[in-house]
Design a protein around this nucleic acid. Structure first.
Lengths: 188, 188
DNA sequence: AAGCTCATGTAAGTTGTTACATGATTGA
DNA sequence: TCAATCATGTAACAACTTACATGAGCTT
């Protein structure tokens, strides 16, 4: 039982869905390809955490719907009591910044503009999800509250990233203004 | 040549260092264990991107110092021209939030408090790095500018995460206040 | 005496990516 | 007609983690 499998279990605890659908639902919060998800679901079913049935569709390909079992619910609740491991972020851009000093300004600007586009589309996507969350009953035990909290996590993060890009672009535009007079350089 | 190897190349372009030191230097921005770094450095040396020499130490174990070769510098500069792939974040907490609605409030609060501690220690660590960056010559081509930008990236991110934790904790403390009157629920 | 830091490596296992494989329907 | 979406799977490979292995010096 790895972290991804608990994520899938958490999604299936809300409502049954196909592997394809799970892949799409988990995407914004945990990147996983279908080639990782399908075998994992099969293994989880073999271990009795899930059950499945096939749904025939006339217009689209048939699909396999997974649903969580009592054993699955139990495993999920056990997991809730364990401590959470710290986040792992692997961002090529961080590594790129190690050698920003030997890059030309033009390609640096393009890199930050590209990252701004990334954050803007992520913000748009998450705000779309946010709009779909029912505003009534946003109290602790509700699924809407879970969703709200999770989407805000991504949203605040993406906005911080966007702010950072804008800060850096302004600093680069300010050019060779001496740092004593540069309003962008703030230690704290 | 994977992303991590470019990261190591970027660090070695500044100054030569040991595998152990590289592991520590890369840690705050890309989590990698020594067991991944040592074989990678050996492979990079075999491919002519790095060279190495042993340094004897009397008080501590001997160490192997790697330095970047001309071929390594060239590879690094090539990489600078390629497009940057989007960040990948794997945070168990996001998955945990999928099923926040079936957790008890007490363990939820503990989870957020733990995450606050994580962000606080990360902020303290990054501010330590920030203080070591020379404030003079923070203009584009300098290593100090690279460092400043990179540390700000992590810092703004951690601060956004901390704000998010505090927001959620306040929402939970507000309890069953109806959402129309709850000042913490803001769409946008 | 026990555990941490420094220091380098290997072995075995898990996780994640890319590519292969198929095939109908819908929209540009 | 070309590409995308829906839908499920396998195979091969790359990336990453955990555990094994060693050993001196320093701190509690």
């Amino acid at each position: 039982m790895n972290l991804l499998s608990y994520g899938l279990l958490g999604l299936l605890a809300r409502h049954e869905s196909s592997g394809y659908d799970l892949m799409l639902r988990i995407q914004p919060f945990w990147q996983a390809k279908h080639s990782q998800i399908y075998p994992l679901l099969a293994r989880m079913e073999k271990n009795g955490l899930l059950s499945s049935r096939w749904i025939q569709q006339s217009d689209k390909p048939d699909k396999k719907i997974y649903m969580i079992t009592d054993k699955g619910i139990h495993a999920l609740q056990q997991w809730t009591h364990e401590s959470v491991s710290p986040p792992v972020t692997r961002d090529e851009m961080s590594l790129r910044l190690f050698c920003l000093w030997l890059a030309d300004k033009g390609s640096a600007i393009r890199m930050f503009e590209e990252r701004k586009r990334h954050f803007n589309s992520r913000i748009a996507h998450l705000e779309g999800i946010l709009d779909a969350i029912p505003a009534e009953n946003l109290s602790f035990g509700s699924q809407a509250f879970s969703d709200y909290v999770l989407v805000q996590k991504g949203l605040l993060n993406a906005k911080a990233g966007l702010d950072w890009c804008n800060m850096v672009l302004k600093m680069m535009a300010a050019g060779d203004v001496k740092e004593e007079h540069n309003p962008f350089i703030l230690k704290n």
